[in-house]
Amino acid sequence: TWAPCSRSRLVSVLTENSSTITELVLLELSNHPQAEIPLFLFFSLVYLVNLFGNMAVIILVVIDSCLQTPMYFFLCHLAFLNILYTTAVVPKMLFNLLASKKVISYKLYLAQTYICPFMGAAECIILAVMALHLYVATCHPLQYLLIMTWSVCAQLAVGAWSVTFFASVVPLYIAIPPFCGPYVIDHIFCEVPVLLHMVCGDTSLQETMMVIGASDTLLLPCLLLVLSYLHLLVAVMTMNSAEGRKKAFSTCSSHLTMVTIYYGTGMFMYMRPKSLYSAEGDKLISLLYAVINPALNPLIYSLRNEEVKSALGRVLERWTVSQAPRIQ
C-alpha cells in the first residue's frame, strides 16, 4: 500500500522502478488537497448531469417521432460522444481525488491516450456537420428535404467518425515514442500535449504530427463553421419575419456557444507552442472541454429548444396516462 507522499518521493520511486513499471502517477488536482472532497462532490454532480442529460436526449429522440429529423440525429451523435468522452476521464479522476495512491494503470493510460483525442476530434467534426445542417435548413429551406436525406446524414456521420480515426488515432500511433522516467503525469488525464513532456529527446516530429492532426480536425472544420455562419447571418438578416429571425438566432446561438467554448479551448491546447505549457492552466482548460462542456450541451440544446421541451411534455403525458389506473 502507498501512503500519501510528496511529489518528489513519487518521482524517485517511479524512477527507481521504471524498468518494470505497470502504472503511472496521475497527479490531477493533488496540489490542492484541501479542496479534493468539495471537488469530488462537484465533479460527481457534473458527471451525473452529463450522463442523465445526454442519455435523456438520445432516449427522447428515439421514442418521439417528431424529433426524428437530421438535426436531432446529429445531436444524438454529439450526446453519445459526450458520454463516452467523460466516461473515459471522469470516473478515474473522481477515484483519484479520494485515493491516497494517485496512479493510473498502464492499460488505462493507453486507453485515454487514444480515446480522448479520437472523441475530441470527432466532436469537432460533428459540430461542423451540425453547422452545415443549420446552413442548409436556413438558407435552402425549399431544397432541405432533397439535400438532407437520411442517406446523406448517414454518410456524413460515417465520414465524420472515419476522418476522425485517420486524422487523430493513426498519427498518434505512429508519432508517440516510448517515454522516459519519471512516469509522473501532472494533468487531469493522459492527454498528448502533456505526455510530450515525458518523451525522451527531441519532440519536434511529435509536435508537428500533433499540429497536422489538429489542423485536420480543428482548423478545417472551423473554416467550414465560419463559412456556414457567414451565410447563415446573411440569410437571417434578410428574413422578413421577425419570428423567423428570432427562432433562427435562438437555434444558432445555442450551437455557436458550444462551438466557441470547444474550439477555443481545443485550439489553445493542441496548436500552441510547447513553450507556452502551463500545468495549472492546462488542467483548467481540459476540465472545460472534457468535463464541463459535455454536461452543458444537453442543457443548452434542450432548455432553449421549444421542440425538445414539447417532446418531453408529450412523453411525460403519455407516461402519466399509461400509469393511471384504468376506469372499470
Rank of each mutant, 00 (worst) to 15 (best):
K92I: 13
Y270N: 09
C116G: 05
L145E: 11
A295C: 10
M258V: 14
L110A: 09
T217P: 02
C124D: 01
P325E: 13
T260N: 07
V158R: 06
C116W: 02
P91E: 11
P171E: 03
M130T: 10
G53F: 00
V315Q: 11
A160T: 12
V184Q: 03
Y262C: 02
P177S: 05
P325I: 10
A311Q: 04
V192F: 08
F179E: 10
M269E: 09
T320W: 09
A235T: 03
A122Q: 10
V192E: 12
P33R: 06
V211G: 03
M237D: 10
G53H: 00
L132T: 09
V321I: 15
T251C: 08
A154H: 09
M210L: 15
T217Y: 00
F189V: 07
N82G: 15
P177E: 01
N297M: 14
I285W: 07
P171L: 04
G53R: 00
T113E: 13
L39T: 06
I300A: 04
L67S: 06
T251M: 10
H197P: 00
L84C: 15
L97A: 08
G281K: 14
G244V: 02
L29Y: 09
V226W: 09
A131D: 06
H255N: 10
T260L: 15
K247Q: 11
T251F: 06
M239V: 00
L287T: 11
R7F: 11
P38C: 02
E123M: 15
S286I: 13
D186P: 02
L98Q: 13
A99M: 10
P298N: 01
Y229H: 14
V25D: 05
R304P: 03
T238Y: 07
L172N: 09
I300H: 01
S162K: 08
T87E: 07
L284S: 14
V192L: 12
T22G: 14
Q155R: 15
N297W: 15
S250E: 07
V170K: 09
A122F: 06
